[in-house]
Amino acid sequence: MRDLERTWNSKFNYPWTFLNDVPFTEEFKRKTKAATKAEVRYELVPKEHWEVPAWINMDLFQESAQVLKEQDVQYAEKISYHQMCRWNSGMFYKHPALQNYRYYWRVEPHVHFFCDVDYDVFRYMHDNNKTYGFTVNIYDSPQSIATLWPETLKFLASDDHARYLHPNNAMDWLTDSKRREEHNLLANGYSTCHFWSNFEIGDMNFWRSKQYEEFFQHLDRSGGFFYERWGDAPVHSIALGLFEDKSKIHW
């Protein structure tokens, strides 16, 4: 927070919204308010957005988590991590506190900002018709998302869903098998390359769209957020790569 205030937000004073599944401490509130001149809000994640869905079999979750742990998949046994990935994939932009906002800059703990930014990034997004901004692409653990791409193809198999594919999509990037062939094989056709979502600036109208909501609901019902360890980064990346004009994705 200090980094971002120093390098950027002290010039623009955009409000900060902190979200958590439990109440913030008074110490946290005092220290974060002291770090900015902008408005600061503290919000609770609605219980129904955070809790494990009723259709998830917890015995199967425990068995799956053990298998993933044996494959050195990080955080596989931490139910809260799965909940967080699901929430970041399909819930955060539905929070009542964000309903009057269109653009967001996601700020994660332990992320640092080194360079001065002297322009209004949200105005840039709006004026240049950009949907999503990122800083780096990285490869995910293919064991953590083994069925994510097959489930995506199931979604696209419907004529109603196939029409959501944008003519200028990034399918070649999503299915690249040359750079890391083993990743593509283990992830059943997905390159595993994704936008690192610990830094992302986005237009929530994309996440609120009909095509993304239907895509998320399909993935959610499959159980992969819990039986595997699907992260919000590959989910966001696949959706953007398929349903958005790639010229609207900004690096």
Rank of each mutant, 00 (worst) to 15 (best):
G241D: 00
P46K: 04
S191C: 09
F206Q: 12
G224K: 01
K31Y: 15
E213A: 12
V136C: 13
Q99A: 05
E244S: 07
G224V: 03
K31N: 14
W87H: 01
N184A: 13
R102G: 03
F24P: 01
E70S: 08
A170G: 14
E63K: 10
L4C: 14
Y42S: 08
Y139A: 07
N88S: 07
R6L: 05
A35I: 05
P96N: 09
Q211L: 15
D21E: 11
E43M: 07
Y164V: 05
E5F: 09
V22N: 15
E48L: 02
P53R: 00
Y132W: 09
A146C: 06
D72Q: 05
V40A: 10
D232N: 07
F12S: 05
T32C: 09
A54T: 07
K248F: 06
T36Y: 02
Y103K: 04
S141C: 09
E70T: 08
F12N: 08
T32Y: 10
H250M: 07
E244L: 11
D172V: 07
H236K: 05
V117T: 05
F122N: 06
W149R: 02
R6V: 03
V45R: 09
N169C: 09
P142N: 01
D232K: 01
P96K: 03
Y139T: 10
E43L: 09
K78W: 07
G133L: 09
A187G: 06
E39C: 14
H236W: 02
E228D: 03
E228G: 05
F24R: 06
F18W: 11
S191R: 01
R208G: 13
H161V: 12
Y93V: 02
W50N: 02
M84S: 01
H194C: 10
V111E: 07
S10V: 11
K47S: 12
K94I: 01
D140E: 12
K31T: 14
N198C: 12
N169Q: 14
E63S: 05
R229N: 03
M204V: 15
K210A: 15
R30N: 15
E181T: 15
Q62L: 15
N13M: 11
Y75A: 02
R2M: 05
A239M: 04
A34T: 13
P109V: 12
F195M: 04
Y227A: 10
A187Y: 01
Q62E: 14
A34M: 11
S89V: 01
P96C: 10
H236I: 03
D118C: 07
G202W: 13
Y139Q: 01
S64D: 13
K130E: 03
Y101S: 07
G189T: 02
T7Q: 03
S177Y: 13
K47P: 06
D72C: 09
Y104R: 11
Y132M: 10
